[in-house]
Design a protein around this nucleic acid. Structure first.
Length: 552
RNA sequence: GCCCCAGUAGCUCAGCAGGACAGAGCAGCUGCCUUCUAAGCAGCGGGCCGCAGGUUCGAAUCCUGCCUGGGGUACCA
């Protein structure tokens, strides 16, 4: 570690009495904006100049002198007001090509997570119809975050929470009943606030066709319950699973809200809160005393009609995650329309005697859909929506994922369907994939020669573009580390782009395949570099859930 | 009213646990395909980092206020 080398230099200077003893803040190594300033820089001397009683630049010289030129450290310089700039040694850099190939698929893995059990929950939405486009951002962020955390050394479990209880589910069932009855010629109106989407009309017809009048002969409540179940399992969730698999989104576990009530978990969680004195009855409802935790208002847990609200389920659900299943950390991915719910959930954590820090909620801003510059308004209940399926058919899963990943969750984004679907150089998705396809093409040609990429001698690599490509490749572990720490999946998209750029530049500057006998060794070395670049590029694409095409 | 997020190049966005002259893509303009994929490469132009204060040796980054946009503020989820 470079920061360690710097801190050792400090320790040495202190031992030698050159500078007074003081404790050093963490040394942050950063990448200077300008390439000419070296690969890494630290401003530590600017920060502690005062403590050392020296001008920052003087201190920097003292320290720089004591940094040993071993391992990755090729050159140490002092610049500006007291920065220490470190340049990686070329011989160390080229050896990393061998390291990368040796690491193979595990290249980039870090152990920041130390095996901590983390659950990532994403995609939870009312299962009352086909998935909507806005929802794509949720699952893409969640799925990618799970990939990142797994690569960062966490033990990850991915979960989909099915809200199969509550008011919306009931409305769904009643709406489906109405459509079903209508399909059989009865004049049953949709319930007030019912789901008006065309898909329910279709489902009603399908059920009428296969089940006939069976549900009409049952008591209404019973029929609605049966249709809710049928609609959920046979229609909604099947569609959801198909959509997710098209998008390449994976899950380990599907968790049903109703199971919280069936298993007694809900009662357990309530009993714990009551025992701790955080529940109170008021106006016929049961309230959670969020105000005890600095919230403006208390929140209703059980409504005066005796039914638990969504908040009740969420309390029980998180109790289940932490207490019953014992996750160390839980990450929830929620849309910005739920952000008001965050402080309440944090309060619940505290009320349950759990450290609120263990619950991390990633809030992403909502997506504005556009088509050719025009905003598309959406509403699920009126059925006026663009489905995820339509999006996937129009744009393709790779472009959807890359596009949604190329912005920080915090930033509001516009998704222009026309733009994303465009298969041209305007679309950065292809830039990254093209680099991979290009590599694959070169390697295919190499297969027709007797030259083996694995025979390459990396010490022959010395062109700036070669070294630059290696510099870029060895960033991956850091990128994964940062992305995991900050819950920032978009870093991958930017990294992938930079990596592709470095390859394209190398490709232009350095002829890989040469037929000249005297360049045979160099060709093998460059083939080896190319092979390693392919591996790293494929790793990033895989982390983003995208395909790495062999041809384009 | 109060709370959360954002405001950076013509457009879409990075950068924000303070650091060296502010970055990328797209769009615009120039060049580059008789040898590995031109979905590529190289270059040019383009910025009071929303506004005003403050903290600091140093602020796009931290603090305060204001302005603009989005979201929330229900016994809906």
């Amino acid at each position: 570690m470079l920061s360690q080398a710097v801190s050792e230099a400090f320790a040495q200077a202190q031992r030698e009495g050159e500078i007074p003893a003081f404790s050093l803040p963490p040394i942050v190594m950063e990448k200077p904006r300008q390439g000419t300033l070296g690969d890494y820089a630290t401003a530590i001397c600017l920060q502690v100049g005062r403590l050392a009683g020296l001008a920052p630049a003087t201190l920097a010289h003292l320290i720089a002198k004591r940094i040993a030129l071993t391992g990755p450290i090729g050159r140490v310089e002092v610049a500006g007001p007291g920065f220490i700039n470190i340049t990686l040694s070329a011989s160390w850099l080229v050896r990393q090509v061998d390291e990368i190939l040796a690491a193979g698929q595990s290249f980039g893995m870090v152990d920041a997570g130390k095996g901590l059990r983390v659950q990532v929950e994403y995609g939870s939405a009312n299962p009352t119809g086909p998935l909507h486009v806005g929802f794509a951002r949720n699952v893409v962020i969640g799925d990618t975050l799970a990939n990142i955390l797994a690569a960062a050394g966490y033990s990850v479990e991915r979960e989909y929470y099915v809200n199969d209880a509550g008011t919306q589910m009931q409305l769904f069932g009643q709406s489906l009943y109405a459509r079903y009855a209508q399909a059989l010629g009865l004049d049953v109106p949709l319930p007030e606030n019912g789901y008006q989407g065309q898909y329910l009309v279709e489902w009603g017809k399908e059920i009428a066709a296969t089940a006939g009048r069976r549900y009409l002969d049952m008591p209404y409540e019973e029929a609605v319950a049966a249709l809710t179940e049928l609609g959920l399992k046979e229609k909604v969730l099947k569609g959801v699973q198909e959509d997710l698999s098209l998008l390449g989104v994976k899950y380990d576990n599907w968790f049903f809200e109703r199971s919280l009530y069936a298993s007694g978990t809900f009662e357990e969680a309530m009993a714990l809160l009551r025992q701790r004195g955080y529940l109170e009855e008021r106006d016929g409802a049961i309230w959670f005393l969020a105000s005890r935790f600095g919230e403006d208002k208390d929140a209703v847990v059980i409504r005066s009609n005796g039914l638990p609200g969504y908040f009740a389920s969420d309390i029980a659900y998180h109790y289940d995650k932490f207490v019953k299943r014992g996750f160390d950390v839980v990450v929830d991915v929620w849309g910005a329309d739920h952000q008001g719910h965050v402080p309440r959930m944090k309060a619940v954590m505290a009320a349950l005697g759990l450290d609120p820090e263990r619950l991390h909620i990633v809030i992403y801003q909502l997506v504005t859909l556009k088509r050719g510059g025009e905003i598309i308004r959406i509403s699920k209940r009126t059925g006026d929506l663009v489905t995820l399926r339509e999006l996937l058919e129009e744009v393709g899963p790779d472009a959807v994922r890359y596009f949604l990943l190329s912005r920080a969750p915090d930033s509001q984004m516009e998704f222009d369907l026309e733009l994303a679907a465009r298969q041209t150089e305007e679309n950065p998705v292809f830039y990254v994939q093209y680099a991979h396809a290009r590599i694959a093409s070169v390697l295919r040609l190499a297969q027709r020669t007797p030259l083996q990429p694995t025979d390459g001698d990396v010490s022959l690599l010395e062109h700036p573009s070669e070294l630059n490509l290696i510099r870029q490749m060895i960033q991956l572990p850091e990128v994964i580390c940062d992305a995991a720490r900050d819950y920032a999946p978009h870093r991958l998209a930017y990294y992938a782009y930079e990596l592709a750029r470095s390859f394209h530049t190398f490709y232009r500057d350095c002829r890989i395949l040469s037929s000249l006998p005297q360049e045979e060794a160099l060709t093998k070395a460059r083939l080896k570099l190319t092979l390693a670049a392919k591996l790293v590029l494929a790793r990033v694409l895989a982390l983003m859930g995208m395909s790495a095409p062999e041809r384009m």
